[in-house]
Structures are given as structure tokens and as C-alpha cells.
């Protein structure tokens, strides 16, 4: 975990009087609002959340909100982008390495599961709530999905060549679908336990039955050890 102020999951509200310069206060107001929209939306659902709820949670005035964001959706999208950027960065750290592809793929999966498990609110906000914002949801989904497929594909250059044209899409959608389900069932915290099974599911279209089974067992033994 970093102390990066852009990491909304680490953010805590500074309380009381302070002598901070105006730009810093504004920056921190923005961050407070972004952290608040994540918490409030994850709890109440996007549709039932009002700008007032966000202001209450953040301790920020309405005028400041509208100086920083157009509306509720704008605020939500800004927070969403920060979270997805953060996840992509974490995945990249372990996936863009010189190790063999199978290891990098498993590590990327492990990091992803841990990311979602470490903050169930952020997980729900990132994965589930965007589906409820109306037409904009399609664009959000498509953009996020394409991002992770491109990342996955870029790292596949020296990896195995799958038989299916859209094997990467299968891999990403399988992982996403399983994480989504655990999140809506309120089991986000237990996601890392799925690493061995998901390793098998992720790898099998690329490396076939035998190798994928062996990797599943290896992931299980790494987990126990």
C-alpha cells in the first residue's frame, strides 16, 4: 500500500483548523469528495445517492462541489478513473517484467484479486455501480474492458499462441465475471482464495489442460506456503 494521495482507498479526512494554502485545500477538497463518492455510492447505490450525501460525507460545501465537478456523474467518473488507473498500475508492475508469461499472468491475477479484496467498497464502486448510470455505463465498461485486454495482449507477445481468436477476451471476462460475482455477494475479502482455480481458468485456453492443471496446483502450494 502506498501513501499516494490519489489512492482513494487510503484517503483519510484531515480534520480541524489548518493553515494550508488555498490550492492545497482545494486539492484536498477534491480528494475528499472523490473518497466520499466511493463510500456513499457503495453503500446507497448510485441511483439513490445525492450530491447532498456526498457533501455530507466529505464535509465540503455545495459551491465548492460545483466548482470542481459538473454533477454527480462527473464526480463518480473522476473517482472511477482514479481507481481503474490505480489497478492498472498495480497489475503493470508485476505483468511488465522479464519473467515467463505464465508466472506473470498468475502474478497479475493475484494482484488483481488482492486489489479488489483490500477494499470491498472500492470494489463495488468500481465494478458494480457503473452498470447503473444509464447509457454512459456502456462507454465506461467498454473503455475499462479494452484497457485490460490491451494490457494483457501487450504482455502476451512472448507467450503461447492460443487457438481461439479472442482468448484474451475470454481470459479477462472470466476473471472479471468471477470477481464481480464475489463482490455482489459481499465476499470481496475472500477473493485471494480463488487464485488457484482462477489461474487454471485463465491459463487453460492458452496452455491447454495439463499445464494449466500444474499451474493451478502450483498456485495452491504458493498460497499455502
Amino acid at each position: 500500500m502506498t501513501n499516494d494521495p490519489e489512492d482513494l482507498r487510503q484517503w483519510r479526512l484531515p480534520r480541524g483548523r489548518h493553515g494550508l494554502p488555498r490550492e492545497l485545500v482545494e486539492r484536498s477538497q477534491r480528494e475528499r469528495l472523490l473518497a466520499a463518492v466511493v463510500r456513499v455510492t457503495a453503500t446507497n447505490g448510485y441511483e439513490s445517492t445525492t450530491v447532498g450525501d456526498i457533501l455530507g460525507e466529505a464535509g465540503v460545501g455545495r459551491e465548492s462541489f460545483y466548482e470542481l465537478f459538473d454533477d454527480k456523474l462527473d464526480c463518480m467518473l473522476a473517482a472511477h478513473k482514479i481507481l481503474v488507473d490505480n489497478l492498472e498500475e498495480r497489475v503493470r508492475e508485476v505483468y511488465d517484467t522479464p519473467e515467463p508469461w505464465v508466472d506473470r499472468a498468475r502474478n497479475a491475477l493475484a494482484v488483481t484479486l488482492e486489489w479488489f479484496a483490500s477494499d470491498p467498497d472500492a470494489a463495488k464502486f468500481t465494478l458494480v455501480e457503473p452498470g447503473t448510470v444509464g447509457l454512459a455505463s456502456r462507454e465506461i465498461f467498454l473503455a475499462d474492458f479494452a484497457r485490460f485486454i490491451n494490457l494483457f495482449d501487450a504482455g502476451l507477445a512472448d507467450g503461447p499462441e492460443p487457438e481461439l481468436a479472442q482468448a484474451s477476451t475470454l481470459a479477462i471476462s472470466g476473471t472479471l465475471a468471477r470477481i464481480y460475482e464475489e463482490v455482489i455477494l459481499g465476499r470481496a475479502e475472500e477473493l485471494p482464495r480463488l487464485l488457484p482455480d482462477l489461474t487454471y481458468e485463465l491459463l487453460v485456453p492458452f496452455v491447454g489442460e495439463e499445464v494449466a492443471r500444474a499451474e493451478q496446483e502450483r498456485a495452491a502450494s504458493l498460497q499455502d506456503g
Binding site: L142, Q166, T169, S173, A177
Partner: peptide, 11 residues
């Protein structure tokens, strides 16, 4: 597999 199919079609 169902979740995967859903995501594929949705995309």
C-alpha cells in the same frame, strides 16, 4: 462460463 459469456456479449 455464464459470467464470461455475459461479459463477452456485453462488450
Amino acid at each position: 462460463a455464464f459470467g464470461q459469456a455475459q461479459v463477452l456479449i456485453l462488450s
